[in-house]
Write a protein that binds this DNA or RNA. Structure first.
Length: 327
DNA sequence: AACCAAGGCAACCGCTCGCAG
DNA sequence: CCTGCGAGCGGTTGCCTTGGT
């Protein structure tokens, strides 16, 4: 649709290839002074021998003042891998969760580093599923009944989270069809809420609150159960505390500590980015707080990872099932 | 020192989408 | 509803750098 006439064509006078510092200077100065306005007419106004599309790309991916360059942090790695598992190759949506990073940079980083890292660990970079399980007891069965019980519990927890995500994505689509302000970034915006980014979403946030997605019901139930149990004497045998106690005697899972110490809600914990020590180094993906509790209390050595215990496969199976149903 | 292969990254290309007329 | 325009997105290309022989 009206594309070819506006694409960069190899016509005379239009320069291609790497940008020179002088060109960068011209473009930056012009955009910062006048705004970009119409990209197609910008090159002429700015005195550049480039096509508008090239200018736009250069500005977006390189010259914009709010761009962060340099190495990706551990947390950024985690976020990219998590979101790629959820969103696939939707780089712009992924970039929406990484402030100051461009979609192009993330895409390049994925192809040059993360994809290979996953492959080296034995994971399919497309499906994020382990190609094989180390101990051969996938599907939730383990030789250790206690461990198996714990893992099932964790799997339920993560399954609930994934279910919430899946349902929210569907809800988000409905909102979009009816009156939602999102465009094709709707999923990323939804995920943004889920992951605790973009605290101030304006209208989006209001819609989110007013329309209280059903997917959060399960979390509210968990939260109320947890809050009531938290007010009880320590050592109660309710669902969640027994989870913590069962794992390591007096150990209090970090998710509970978070609620009592800083007032965060379960929802916050559930959807918030995991803390650094919850990072599963072997897989290179973050895990939620309850996972960390298990991680620490089961005495996992640094070499252990989720799929070692058949857990990751369970989670991904459930996740795929949920999204299949949704679509 | 020269050559080559691999990796990283900026830039390009082709397509799609949303919007306005 | 149709068409054209402008912008955005994801895949691909090609240049430059680095490391190995």
């Amino acid at each position: 649709m009206g594309r070819s006439t506006h694409d960069c064509v190899a016509s005379s006078g239009i320069k291609k290839g790497p940008w020179t510092p002088a060109e960068d200077q011209k473009l930056s100065a012009f955009v910062q002074k006048h705004g970009h306005g119409n990209w197609l007419s910008l090159p002429q106004k700015a005195g550049l021998q480039r096509c508008g599309k090239s200018c736009r790309l250069r500005w977006r991916n390189y010259l914009r003042p709010d761009i962060k360059r340099g190495n990706f942090s551990l947390q950024e790695d985690q976020t990219i891998i998590q979101l790629h598992a959820l969103l696939g190759n939707r780089w712009s949506a992924i970039a929406a969760h990484l402030p100051k990073r461009t979609d192009n940079e993330i895409k390049n980083y994925w192809h040059s580093r993360l994809k290979k890292r996953l492959a080296l660990k034995g994971y399919d970079p497309v499906t994020h599923k382990p190609k094989t399980t180390i101990f051969g007891f996938a599907n939730g069965s383990t030789d250790d009944p206690k461990t198996g019980s714990n893992l099932n519990h964790i799997a339920q927890w993560e399954s609930a989270r994934l279910q919430a995500e899946a349902r929210f994505v569907r809800d988000s689509d409905l909102h979009k069809q009816a009156y939602h302000p999102y465009n094709n970034n709707d999923i990323s915006a939804a995920s943004s809420i889920l992951l605790g980014h973009n605290k101030d979403c304006g209208l989006t946030d209001q819609l989110f609150r007013q329309n209280a997605p059903q997917c959060l019901d399960i979390l509210r139930a968990w939260e109320s159960m947890l809050m009531s149990s938290d007010s009880k004497a320590a050592g109660g045998q309710d669902h969640v505390n027994s989870f913590g106690n069962h794992l390591a005697g007096d150990f209090k899972p970090p998710i509970i500590s978070a609620i009592s110490s800083n007032g965060s809600s379960l929802m916050d914990c559930f959807f918030h980015e995991p803390v650094g020590q919850c990072f599963d180094e072997n897989y290179g993906i973050s895990i939620t707080e309850p996972f960390a509790a298990v991680h620490h209390n089961m005495g996992f050595k640094n070499g252990a990872c989720l799929e070692d215990f058949g857990l990751w496969e369970i989670i991904m199976q459930r996740k795929n099932k949920l999204f299949d149903i949704g679509n």
